[in-house]
Design a protein around this nucleic acid. Structure first.
Length: 232
DNA sequence: TAGGCCATCTGGTCCT
DNA sequence: AGGACCAGATGGCCTA
């Protein structure tokens, strides 16, 4: 499943860019990336196009002056020495690539988060439950899949034969059949459409619980239950 | 206020 | 060379 990153992407600031209006004062720690990125990209392209005759050196804050009606700065030839200018050019290109990489990384993480959200959507939780954290979502999904698999296995065994298999299909506690006890009855992988009488316990399936450090807090592994669910 | 969670930046590494 | 992926660092926000 592919989820477009744009869904979660921050609002576009294209208009501002097109109008030549940068954000008033981007905080130093949060460089209003998209915008700055565009600027820098533009700079890089200009840099590359106009490579040999280096552009006049600008003060770090003087971006707005860059396209000042083609007016040449006086003293261009008297500017920084060529070596310094090329060094600065290299610096700017480096910076531009960094910003590009930051942008890609941001999009990548947005995609990851979108996938995580999609996963949350198909996990059975009480609606009033607080949003699962990332790690909780992954662990819950892991256990949920395990529980569904187990349910299918037991249900299949029940259908197959009367000898032993049927007995195995009935949980030891004598509770109703696993499949029917799932909210909505069907072990659908997309149960979000129906209200839930129960929710799965995110407790670990057997086997992966060996490392307690991986199961902190409310996701600590309990005894591996045949059906990790929590009916209150 | 400490701790948990998160988003973002960053530099390194691997892959195409 | 450029992009994807990864892990560490950092700072903000929220809650107990």
């Amino acid at each position: 499943m592919l989820v477009k990153a744009e869904v979660l992407a921050p609002p576009a600031e294209d208009e501002l860019l097109l109008l030549g209006l940068g954000s008033p004062a981007p905080s130093p720690s949060l460089p209003s990336s998209a915008e700055e990125e565009e600027e820098e990209e533009e700079e890089e392209e200009e840099e590359l196009r106009a490579a040999p005759p280096a552009r006049p050196v600008e003060a770090p804050g003087g971006r707005g002056l860059r396209r000042a009606e083609g007016k040449r700065r006086l003293g261009r030839s008297r500017g920084a020495p060529r070596a310094a200018r090329t060094a600065e050019t290299a610096q700017r290109i480096k910076r531009s690539r960094r910003l590009k990489a930051n942008n890609r990384e941001r999009n990548r993480m947005h995609n990851l988060n979108a996938a995580l959200d999609a996963l949350r959507d198909v996990l059975p939780t009480f609606p009033e439950d607080a949003k699962l954290t990332k790690i909780e979502t992954l662990r819950f999904a892991h256990n949920y899949i395990w529980a569904l698999t187990e349910t299918l296995r037991l249900a299949g065994a029940a259908r197959l034969g009367p000898d032993g298999a049927a007995a195995a299909a009935v949980p030891a506690e004598g509770s109703p059949s696993p499949a029917s006890s799932w909210s909505g009855g069907a072990a659908s992988p997309a149960p979000s459409a129906s209200p839930y009488a129960c929710t799965l316990s995110p407790a670990s399936p057997a086997g992966s619980a060996s490392d307690p450090e991986h199961w902190p807090g409310r996701f600590a592994p309990g005894p591996p239950p045949p059906l990790p669910r929590r009916c209150l």
